[in-house]
């Protein structure tokens, strides 16, 4: 069995509105390794959530996967997710059971009119053959496992009586209910404060180690990447501009955008006097994209060549970059 849990190859997802086409994802490739965390990082609007929705087949109504493939390596063999009907029984059997997802805001992601226990139990009811009694016990056990105090009591409570951090733990309990092979977390801590954030990450790391769950973590925060990632994919305007192991990306960034992202946040351990520079300009209008490299208008290294889309270059076996000038970027230190 390969160590790859999910493989995304040159996927293109377009969103249509008012007769216009937003190429939200335009040729994205990556793979998620078993028991590892892949971080997708990039500014808001670059297509991170649409990437996750493509894998879950939970896309907005007027959108379509126009090309490429998404292959899920299940225990029973490979499944081409992009070929499955969106709401068919096979896709539903994968969702929540083999690939589970948690969302940004635990305040709104849980249904306010049902108890926490009910919402976890729903998952088990549809994906397992457990008895009602076993499901009830499992709900309590899951909450306890996620570090929620008084789980017997919490299981009967409504989301509004839990704090933000507890709700996100309950969301994770819900996602982990069927021991999924892959956990997709779309900015799971953006809505939480920093100490809670650290606790949630600790929990996710523990789950990864204990259950061998592959994690796809979406974030706009390089600090999060440094803490959690095994692999990193940097995304800009619907393309992955640079991907590699966490060392490749944090220590040897070869794309100007990656470097810009890195220098726009303080990094732990680099001391007090690091210069923090926001990226100049702003992301282009998705309906009015620059030709060629999407980052060129904001890039310090841009040249004539950047009017054409660069080819993907492997600078190391695990490290690829989408830039004409990556050598100059590397040389500039």
């Amino acid at each position: 069995m390969s160590d790859i849990a999910l493989e995304v190859d040159d996927i293109k997802t377009y969103i249509y509105s008012n007769r216009r086409c937003n190429k939200a994802i335009d040729g994205v490739s990556f793979s998620i390794r078993r028991g590892k965390t892949l971080c997708i990082v990039g500014e808001s609007g670059c297509g991170k959530s649409i990437t996750a929705s493509s894998i879950m087949q939970l896309l907005p109504a007027l959108s379509r996967i126009e090309g490429g493939s998404i292959t899920y390596h299940s225990d029973a063999g490979e499944i081409r997710i992009d070929k499955l009907p969106r709401n068919g029984a096979r896709m539903r059997a994968i969702r929540g059971s083999e690939i589970a997802m948690i969302f940004q805001d635990p305040m709104t992601a849980l249904n306010p009119v049902y108890t926490v226990g009910f919402q976890i139990a729903e998952n088990l009811k549809y994906h397992t053959k457990m008895t009602a009694r076993a499901i009830r016990d499992r709900c309590v056990a899951l909450l306890r496992h996620m570090g929620i105090p008084l789980p017997e009591q919490r299981v009967r409570e409504y989301p509004h009586s839990l704090s933000g951090g507890m709700r996100q733990r309950a969301m994770i309990a819900m996602a982990m209910a069927c021991n999924p092979k892959i956990l997709i977390a779309d900015e799971p801590t953006t809505a939480l404060d920093v100490t809670i954030q650290a606790q949630i990450f600790e929990l996710m790391n523990r789950l990864k180690a204990e259950h061998g769950t592959a994690i796809l973590l979406i974030t706009h925060d390089m600090g999060v990447v440094a803490e959690l990632a095994d692999d990193v994919a940097v995304m800009y305007m619907g393309k992955i501009v640079e991907a590699g192991t966490v060392d490749d990306i944090l220590r040897r960034p070869r794309h100007p955008y990656t470097r810009a992202l890195l220098s726009s946040i303080p990094v732990l351990g680099r001391g007090k006097n690091q210069s923090i520079r926001p990226i100049r300009g702003s992301t282009p209008d998705p309906y009015n994209r620059p030709p060629g490299c999407q980052f060129a208008p904001r890039c310090d290294f841009a040249t004539e060549a950047c009017q054409r889309m660069p080819d993907e270059t492997f600078v190391a076996p695990t490290h690829r970059v989408l830039c004409w000038n990556h050598d100059r970027v590397a040389a500039s230190g």
């Binding site: 879950m56 939970l58 709401n87 896709m91 539903r92 059997a93 994968i94 969702r95 929540g96 059971s97 589970a100 997802m101 969302f103 805001d105 709104t108 992601a109 849980l110 249904n111 306010p112 919402q119 729903e122 998952n123 549809y126 994906h127 969301m171 819900m174």
Partner: peptide, 17 residues
């Protein structure tokens, strides 16, 4: 249009539910 609907779909529940 609420987010908990997306959560429910992400759990793999059937459409009617």
């Amino acid at each position: 249009s609420r987010e908990y609907i997306r959560t429910a779909r992400a759990k793999g529940l059937p459409g009617w539910r």
